[in-house]
Design a protein around this nucleic acid. Structure first.
Lengths: 254, 254
DNA sequence: CCTAGGCTACTGGTCCGACCAGCATACTGG
DNA sequence: CCAGTATGCTGGTCGGACCAGTAGCCTAGG
């Protein structure tokens, strides 16, 4: 006979599980309202404090949202990457995720994204990328370059590529990794010596990649994008931490 | 003059922020203890309910852990990918992620993982993969094949590969995607007609891939792995949903 | 002297009852 | 018919209470 260790399951946890399960199973769809806390406390047969602690947990995971005074009750939210973003951000700040690992992941992700986007993109999605690139061009050529706006247009470009893959998982992970990468080096970017030159080379790289995507040459787009990411960001990395990135560069394989 | 919209900041949120900041800033290191709830309520000058709701949020993000009756108070935890895992799992289950998208992402992720692992793996990590594969072989050859155990050994193999990349992000994402993929088709796997044959071909594919990793041929390992994933799982997918997977097959890996 | 045992003072989990400010709706007066 | 108030709910916070559980002391027995 074998026994397994047990851990006490608290009342509020059971409530979280039940509500979470209902949401995941689709019994509660985004936009729907939960019963009020006072209703829930009689449904679950617990005190209001317990209900509230459960709702707090669900709120912190972006599953529901409560507004004081709203007679319709807590709202069920649609799944959002916000929680994912927060956890990843925390890991990055706690030092569990270094800049090197994030950059490596981004190269991997975007590399594949271009591969897919070049083959699967619609004309409309191609137009989105083009307009984002035009925006970048306009900003880089402006008399007084707005680096922040340029960065936003850059994000829009990469986002359009990710959407062109048709895979929401790629979109979300791309968003998150880009955000965290940018956050880790944003102060260094602020004091870059020649931001205008940076913008110009960035623009040039994006143009080449877009051309490859337009031509349907996913492999070329992917290779160019990975190389561009490396050239753009590897400088912020100690030399001995660049090795893990190399296998993602020189492999124009089969 | 420009004004920005404001949203009320609740008391428990301020507490979460303060404690979270202290942890992120390193003022509270893993293993340290927080003051008891009754102490905190006097430090923050709020009621115990408010303190408790704040602590609940921190618990649900795996920042701290409380045990009833422990006079030393809540414990500060070290950053772990558990929260990341949960958010991604939720997103995968709730976000309209189809099997096709998950499979695509897994092919992308593992394809790159092999590419990296083949170059970066240590001998020790190679030994882990080998032993996992041996385990699979033993289970497949057993008189009465234990499909569940085989599946576990398979997971161990892929996990070893992911760890060999040295990138925790790849490890976590790999875990999650594998979990969700398996969850989506586990009932279909249960009723597979000839599980023994499935095990044998799976074993064979893994063997080839491992051989490529051992030889340091990441490109070959990646290609084989993506092909194997496709052959193994694409059957569960309607034909018209397989198109998005193809660019990951006949193209060189990123 | 040392150790096994209970003892105690605290912990977190749950409950109750209360008050407040905020919101949507119904109702009211014009 | 509409503006504006009145109402009955909401969630946020408070204070007090009780309980089961734990760590560490403290004592009784060797």
């Amino acid at each position: 006979m074998k026994f397994e260790p047990v851990s006490p399951v608290h009342a509020y946890q059971r409530i979280v599980e039940q509500i979470e399960h209902a949401v995941l199973a689709g019994e509660l769809t985004p936009g729907q309202r939960l019963p009020s806390e006072r209703d829930l406390m009689s449904q679950f047969e617990v005190s209001r404090s317990t209900v509230r602690e459960a709702l707090r947990v669900l709120q912190s995971s972006e599953v529901i949202r409560s507004r004081p005074g709203d007679p319709r009750g807590p709202e069920v939210l649609s799944a959002s990457p916000a929680a994912l973003h927060r956890s990843m951000h925390r890991l990055a700040r706690a030092g569990q995720l270094g800049f090197g690992e994030l950059l490596q992941f981004r190269m991997l992700l975007e590399g594949s994204a271009y591969l897919l986007a070049a083959r699967l993109r619609t004309d409309e999605q191609l137009a989105e990328m083009t307009s984002a690139l035009d925006e970048m061009g306009a900003l880089a050529a402006a008399r007084e370059p707005d680096y922040l706006a340029f960065s936003h247009a850059d994000v829009a470009f990469h986002d359009a590529v990710a959407r062109a893959t048709g895979n929401p998982l790629i979109v979300v992970c791309g968003e998150v990794v880009r955000d965290v990468v940018l956050e880790l080096i944003k102060d260094k970017l602020q004091h870059a010596p020649d931001r205008r030159a940076v913008m110009r080379t960035s623009l040039e790289h994006h143009g080449e990649v877009l051309e490859a995507v337009r031509a349907g040459d996913g492999e070329r787009a992917s290779r160019l994008a990975r190389r561009a990411l490396y050239d753009y960001y590897a400088g912020y990395l100690p030399e001995d931490q660049r090795t893990p990135l190399l296998p993602l560069l020189d492999s124009p394989p089969p």
